[in-house]
Amino acid sequence: MKRKWYDYLWIAELSYWVLGLCNILFAWLGVLFFFIPLLMAAIGGNKIYCNRYCGRGQLLGLLGRKLSRNAPPPRFLRSYWFRGGFLAFFMVMFGLMLHSTYRVFSGAPLRQTVTLLWMFRLPWQWADVEMVAPWVAQFAFGFFGVMMTSTVLGLLTMVLFRPRSWCVYCPMGTMTQGICKLRQGKEDVTCGGKG
């Protein structure tokens, strides 16, 4: 199959990590990875982002060719309650991260740590964030932690199960599929009404 430009978007994902590790403020770029899929699903009513443009999905697919055990994942991983529950948990943790950004905005001191897997605070004192407002830096630390946590989980389940096992419970994938289902439901109702 002839490769297209979007088959190389895994390079964007890799670049994100290189840039973010060099300067944590690049973590802000990750906001794009949140909004683009949601907008595509809301406007286009499809998961074209997951199916074609997601660099993370591509990277897991590529690394998984060599590193994955390629074993079927446990059934619960694809169940609605697990996917929904993980999404809810992820959103709560995301909300807490936004709250600590707000606290710094209101005058609390900046915490130069990146939280991995919601538990481990990695010291990140070496980051130079003097040039921006403390809350801008706090968001970068928090967001980089979110991205790192999801990447570690993605890599772990890639090794244990199939390459793109993360895509089964990825909160973005669950949300975009949910949006598409809602849209489809509405269309079905509209068509039913007409018929």
């Binding site: 998961k47 997951c50 199916n51 074609r52 999905g57 697919g61 694809r78 169940s79 609605y80 996917r83 199939r162 390459p163 793109r164 895509c167 089964v168 994938g173 669950t174 599929q177 598409c180």
Partner: peptide
């Protein structure tokens, strides 16, 4: 029924 529409199969 529990397809997550990830698109891995397309590739």
């Amino acid at each position: 029924r529990e397809c997550v529409a990830c698109g891995s199969c397309l590739r």
